[in-house]
Write a protein that binds this DNA or RNA. Structure first.
Lengths: 376, 376
DNA sequence: TGCACAATTGAATCGAGGA
DNA sequence: TTCCTCGATTCAATTGTGC
C-alpha cells in the first residue's frame, strides 16, 4: 500500500489502475495526463496560495513567524498564477467522472482567481464553504482583522450534472438533526496530528486537519469511491480516505513530502463496515406504493383519510386511489386538488385514525419498510 | 438632508460638493464620473449578484420562495458581468482618496469574479470577511449545504497605501479585548428594520442589516469621513453613516428605492460624540453538534455508547450517526426509538465509559464548550 | 393582558426517472 | 430531446391569531 510511482513507470504499466491507492511522483499536470478519463469520483485540491509576503514578519516578542515562503508558492504575476490554475483544473476536469465533484481550498490571496477560473471552465459551483479556525494565528501588527478562516469551493463538473453524491441525511443526523451549514468550525492541525521531522520542525507548512477532510469525504463520496488529491503534500487526503474506506491517489513533486505521507498512510487502519455505513433518507429507501398498504391490510377499502386538521377528507378505494367529492386519483393528486395546489406529498398530508389519534399514512409505510428490511 | 440629484443637475452645479449627503439618481458609472477625484474615504458596494436561477422554488409546504429575479440582476454572460464589474470598480478607484478603502459584498455567484477583478485593477486585498447569518434560508431540496453566509472583500487602493483607517483598538475593546476576527455573526435584516410598502411587502429584495454596516463603518472610517455607496438600494449605508456622524453619498437608479431611502435617512437621528465609542456586543455561545465530539477525538467511530443502566447500547459511526440494531440516525432519534418514545435528548441519554464508569456524553460537550470559551 | 400556537419569510445558481 | 409523473424537502425569527 501507498506505493510511489514516477510518472514514466505509470505510463509503462499494463494495469490502467496501477495508480490506485498510491502516490504519483511528478508535476501535477503531467501526472494527471497519465490517468484515464472519468476515473475519479472526488477531487480535493489544496493548490499553492500565491502568498505575496514582503519581508519577514515578527511577533511582538521579536520572534520570527515561520511563514510560507517555499519556492513552490512563488508566481511571477496573477497571469502566471491564472495560467497554472487553468492548466491543472482542465486536467482535473478530464479525469473527473461526469457526476464527480471537486473541492478547492484557498485564502483571499488565490481563492477569487480559482473560483473565477472554475466558472470560466464551466464547472458549476454548488457551495462555497468557510472553514472557521478555532485557533488562527493572530494579526501581530494590528493593521487588519485577524485572518480566522479559509474558503473552500465545492463544484460539480457542469450545471447539468445533478446526480453528484451528497450525503445530506448523514450530515443532518450528525448535526443534531438540522441541516449542515456552509460555515464549519475546526481547529488548525497541531499537536500529535501534525507531522514533524526528527528536528521537531513541521514537515509541511500547510498541513490540513483530518477532521476537515473527513467531513468533505463523508459529505461528498461513498465507500469505495476514488479520491484524488493533485497537491498531496503531507497526505491528509490519503490518510483520511483510507480510514474511511475510500480509495485515493495523490500527486506530489517533493520527495520529503512523499516519504512522510507514505509512512503516515501505511499506519492508518481502515474502519469497519458498521462504522462506515452512511445514514440515508427516504430517497434511498425502496419505493413503497400506496396500494401496498391495502395489500397488507394496514388500510382497508372504504376507510376515511383526512388531513391533520380534519379539514379535508377522502375515501380509500379498492384500486388504491382516493376519492374526495368530485376529485379522484392518487394520494398525491387528490391531496393537491383539495388544497388547490399543483403538488402535494400525499404520504405526509393524509392521516388515518388510530385509537382516536390522527397519524400520517407515512407511518404505515415505515412499517412496511421495516418488514422489508427484516426479509433482506 | 437626503436631497436627490439627477446626474445632469450635479454637473451643472457650481458647488463641487453639492452631492454630499444626498442621493444621485442615475447609472452607477455615469454618476461616479460626475464626482471629483479623490473625494471619498470609504466605499461600500453591494452590486448585483448575477444569480442564475432555474425555475420556481417551492418550500416543503408548497409555498413559493420569493426569489431575486429583478431585471437589474440579469446579465447575459460572465463576460458581460466582468465588464460591468470592471467599469464600476475603475470609476470607484478614481473617486477614492489615496488612503481610502473599498468594501464589496457578494455570494459565490459573483464574489470570485469581483475579487479577481479587484486584484487585476491593482486594488490590494486587506481581508475577506465572512458574514455568518444567524437565520439563513434553508436548503429546501437537501441537495447542498445550507447557504449560511455571504462574503465581503476589504481592499485598499493599492499595495503601497499603508495609511488607511483601521480602528483596531476600538474593535478589540468592543470584542472583549481580543482582536476582531474575519468571521462576523449577524441576523439577516428583518422585523421592524426591514422597509416595507403599504402592501406589507419588502421594498428591496436584499436590504442589508444596519449592524453589518455599522461594524464596517466603525472599523474603517473616522467621524466626518465620506462614505460612498454606488448601489444605494434601500439606503442602509446612508442611514448608518448619518447615525454614526459620517457623511454619505448614494447612487441609485430606481425611483422607488430612492424614495424609501430618502425618507428613511431623514428619520435618522445622529448619535452624539459620547455614544460614538464602543457599541457592539457578542452573541450567545454556538451550538455544539454531536459530530464535534468525533472531530475533536473525544469519541471515536466504532465506540459503544449505552444508557445509564446499560439496557440499551449503540455504536458510533464515522458520519456522526448512531446505529442500534435496526435503528440508525442522530443521537436523539436512536435514543427515542430504542425507548419507544417520540423524542429523547441524546446528550443526557447516551453514556460513554470512562475508567469503568458511565458518563453522559453531555460531559464531553461541556469540555468542548469550555475550550471554546477559552478561545473567545 | 398574556401566553401558546400558527403562519410567514429570507440574495437559491435546490429531483429523478421513465415515456 | 422534452414532457410528465411520482414524491421528497426547511431553520430561525418575527408577526399574527385565538384562548
Amino acid at each position: 500500500m501507498a506505493s510511489v510511482f514516477p510518472i514514466a513507470d505509470l505510463r509503462r504499466s499494463n494495469d490502467p489502475f496501477a495508480w490506485m491507492n498510491s502516490i504519483i511522483k511528478g508535476d501535477c499536470v503531467s501526472a494527471l495526463e497519465a490517468l484515464p478519463d472519468h476515473s475519479v469520483d472526488v477531487i480535493f485540491a489544496d493548490p499553492p496560495y500565491n502568498l505575496q509576503l514582503g519581508g519577514m514578519l515578527h511577533r511582538p516578542d521579536q520572534s520570527v513567524v515561520d511563514a510560507v515562503d517555499d519556492e513552490w508558492d512563488q508566481f511571477a504575476s496573477f497571469d502566471a498564477y491564472d495560467a497554472f490554475t487553468r492548466a491543472w483544473l482542465l486536467a482535473c476536469r478530464r479525469v473527473l467522472k461526469p457526476n464527480g465533484t471537486i473541492w478547492v481550498i484557498g485564502s483571499y490571496h488565490n481563492i477569487f482567481r480559482v473560483g473565477a477560473t472554475l466558472q470560466d471552465l464551466n464547472f458549476w459551483i454548488l457551495n462555497d464553504i468557510v472553514w472557521r479556525k478555532t485557533n488562527p494565528m493572530p494579526n501581530f501588527k494590528g493593521r487588519r482583522f485577524q485572518n480566522a478562516h479559509e474558503t473552500m469551493i465545492w463544484a460539480s463538473r457542469d450545471s447539468k450534472a445533478k446526480s453528484y453524491t451528497f450525503n445530506y441525511d448523514a450530515l443532518k443526523a450528525s448535526n443534531d438533526d438540522v441541516q449542515m451549514r456552509s460555515d464549519w468550525l475546526f481547529p488548525i492541525c497541531s499537536g500529535g496530528e501534525r507531522l514533524k521531522g526528527e528536528d521537531g520542525k513541521k514537515i509541511h507548512p500547510t498541513q490540513k486537519p483530518e477532521a476537515l477532510l473527513a467531513r468533505i469525504i463523508l459529505a461528498s463520496s461513498k465507500a469505495g469511491d476514488v479520491i484524488l488529491d493533485p497537491f498531496f503534500g503531507s497526505g491528509t487526503t490519503g490518510a483520511v480516505a483510507k480510514r474511511l474506506g475510500r480509495n485515493f491517489v495523490g500527486i506530489e513533486r517533493e520527495q520529503d513530502y512523499i516519504d512522510a505521507a507514505s509512512a503516515r498512510i501505511d499506519a492508518v487502519e481502515p474502519l469497519g463496515k458498521i462504522e462506515l455505513t452512511v445514514m440515508t433518507g427516504k430517497k434511498a429507501e425502496p419505493r413503497v406504493a400506496f396500494n401496498t398498504l391495502l395489500d397488507s391490510g394496514l388500510l382497508k377499502p372504504g376507510q376515511v383519510l383526512s388531513c391533520d386538521k380534519r379539514k379535508h377528507s377522502a375515501i380509500v378505494r379498492a384500486d388504491g386511489t382516493l376519492v374526495s367529492g368530485t376529485e379522484a386519483g392518487s394520494i398525491h393528486r387528490v391531496g393537491a386538488r383539495v388544497r388547490g395546489l399543483d403538488a402535494c406529498n400525499g404520504w405526509t398530508f393524509w392521516h388515518y385514525e388510530d385509537q382516536g389519534k390522527l397519524k400520517p399514512i407515512d407511518d404505515l409505510r415505515s412499517i412496511i419498510r421495516a418488514d422489508m428490511a427484516k426479509l433482506s
